[in-house]
Amino acid sequence: MAAVKTPRQKVANQLAIAAVIVIAIIFLAPIYWIGSTAFKPRALATTVPPTVLFQPEVTPFVKLFTRRVQLNRPVEPGAYEAAPWWEKRIYDGGERVLRVGEDVQLSGYPDRFLNSLIIAVTSTLLAVSMGTLTAYGFSRFRVAGEQDWLFFILSTRMLPPVVVAIPMFLMYRVVGMTDTHIGLIILYTAFNLSFSVWLMKGFIDEIPKEYEEAALVDGYTRMQAFFKIVLPEAATGIAATAVFCFITAWNEYAFALMMTNRRAQTAPPFIPAQVGSGLTDWTTIAAGTFLFLLPVAIFTFLLRNHLLRGMSFGAIRK
């Protein structure tokens, strides 16, 4: 049946669409800015008003991924001609005094990116799995002092984490966990765990107890019931919790800056360090940021069905 709309409804509808478009533009503007700057020639990065039309180039990415040395004079024309295409880009038309070293070396970015992935993924897995199990326990069993425990868990989030940054740093230094992957993983897991427990408890409370009881009567152990019934039913909640935990761990800046400097450094403290000596190369920073945005976007995109799907889809009568 076609919906018949009154003129008033049509206008309201169009206004709503216009509002959505405006909001989308506001929200997407910074992302567009980063994305476009990542492909701009350096000279156009900071023009006022911003340059919208330009010939995109990959120079910022070449700079991002290579380690460069500063030359004390412009490069020889012969050497410029002989350089490969990507190295030519760094010469900025032969006027700049930078070049890729004698042997091409990767910059620190890929390593930092990998660190970010390792640390964010591992801490997310830990926080979500521990959070799910804890939430299941709180949801299904009578725990002595349940309310107090839950409040205690939540209370770990009550003060801004930066407040404890210095004591944490001192403790980490004593046990030798500064600049280690495991150090940041533990930190981020602890940080996300309270959130994960509370969120998962909400989701698991929504799953009727009868599902497990049916499985228990039908010859399954509680563990089997948990894995075969509760986990699939909680998939939506797990996906949502994982996205949040991942974003928190992925974007964390303050602790990463303080706790790591090289081996286990993540991308967030690394990218601004590319400001460089004497020149602020915004295009390289934008390139680093642009790539850094992708994993969260991909992760969220992959889980979109779980995030959007309603919790219960009507197989239980209440």
Binding site: E210, E213, A214, L216, V217, D218, G219, T221, A315, I316
Partner: peptide
């Protein structure tokens, strides 16, 4: 004995069919 070991079946008011 655990419920699983009693060999008894149970039908709930809520039916509790597994939606997945």
């Amino acid at each position: 004995l655990k419920a699983a070991d009693r060999d008894i079946a149970f039908v709930f008011q809520s039916f509790s069919l597994y939606p997945h």
